[in-house]
Amino acid sequence: MSTPRAKTEATPEAREGTARLFRTVTDTHICPYGVKAKWLLQRHGYAVDDRHLATREEIEAFKREHEVATTPQAFIAGERVGGYDALRSRFGYAEPDRAGSAYRPIMAVFAVALGLALSLSWWASGLLLTARTAEWFVTFSLAMLAMLKLQDIETFSTMVIGYDLLAVRWVPYAYLYPYLEAIAAVLMAGRMLPWLSIPIAFAIGSIGAVSVFSAVYVQKRAIGSACVGGGANVRPGLVSLGENLALVGMAIWMILRPGLM
């Protein structure tokens, strides 16, 4: 395995079309940004002289020599470019859309839920668009949103207490909500135990819808949304309100169409 040379600029590879990459690769850790930096260089046609920093001593010595705080570090034509973000900038990639990526979990939930609903409907009836397709889309979406909340229920409970009218008065409800949502969604997907799923969906959906509407649209409060748990920076609004209205709507639908199969 190659080790770093003292003077990177003096090497034969110091010419355009080649790149030297120093990245952390130890027995216990492979830097993911180093892997991505190597891929990015190769993608843009560079022959990469891949130099592994295999020990803590090598890593610290490299940082001191080049006066950098992190690895990986890429050199092109003998000139230090920097790490993965610097390479992205050099190759003309825009800064990541943090606002757009925050909504990616929601878009993924709806896309996968729709795909599952269409697939299951085709298997069950030979048709893509049926009443059951709509039911499955809604219930699958609700189940996956509940799953996202359950990934970090402590953060979710803290966020929901900020605006939920019941949770702020009875803290255990903030922890119970995602479990109740998941139970209602799973049961309604198979139209099982409607005497249980309908009241749960109607109750938590009504409380949630009123809470979100009051906080966001009446009080105009800037609060974090807990609709996809604590891992996404999504402002509450149509998504959170829609989630709770979907619970209410499914409860009403199952009352009006109890025999639909």
Rank of each mutant, 00 (worst) to 15 (best):
D164L: 06
I204M: 05
L165S: 08
A131R: 12
V228E: 04
Y84E: 04
R20D: 04
P236G: 08
E154T: 10
P72G: 07
L145C: 08
V228P: 02
L238E: 09
I183C: 09
V109C: 07
R90G: 01
V216D: 08
W122S: 12
M188W: 05
A222E: 15
Q151T: 11
V25I: 13
R56A: 10
A86E: 10
T55C: 01
R235Y: 10
F202V: 12
R257N: 13
E181V: 05
D27N: 12
R56H: 13
Y163V: 07
F22H: 15
A99E: 15
Y177W: 08
A94F: 14
Y175H: 14
H29R: 09
A251Y: 00
P178D: 06
A47S: 09
A74C: 01
L53T: 01
R20S: 03
T3F: 11
A209Q: 02
D49A: 08
M188F: 13
I153S: 11
V48P: 01
A203V: 14
V218H: 07
R257K: 12
A203F: 13
G224I: 00
V25A: 08
I223T: 10
A61M: 05
Q219A: 15
E181N: 03
M188G: 07
F137I: 04
M261I: 08
A77F: 03
I161Y: 08
A232M: 06
R221S: 15
M192H: 13
Y163N: 01
D152T: 11
C31S: 04
M192N: 14
W122R: 15
V218D: 10
R80T: 03
F75K: 00
Y175W: 14
A14I: 06
S206G: 13
R80W: 05
G162A: 04
F156P: 07
W123G: 11
A143G: 04
L87D: 02
N233P: 04
V25C: 09
H66E: 11
A117N: 04
T26R: 05
M159L: 14
P32G: 05
S2C: 09
H66I: 10
R80S: 07
V35C: 09
Q73I: 10
A232H: 02
M188Y: 04
D49H: 12
V171P: 02
A69F: 13
V81T: 01
I207Q: 02
F156T: 05
P194Q: 12
S2Q: 12
P178V: 03
R15I: 08
L150N: 09
L21E: 03
A222D: 15
T11I: 11
R64A: 14
V212Y: 03
W123I: 14
C227T: 13
E243R: 05
L150F: 13
G162C: 01
T155Y: 03
S197W: 02
V216W: 09
G242I: 02
V35N: 08
M192W: 14
A113E: 00
W195S: 12
M261S: 11
P172M: 12
P105N: 14
L260E: 11
M254G: 02
F62K: 01
V212S: 04
L21W: 01
G230W: 05
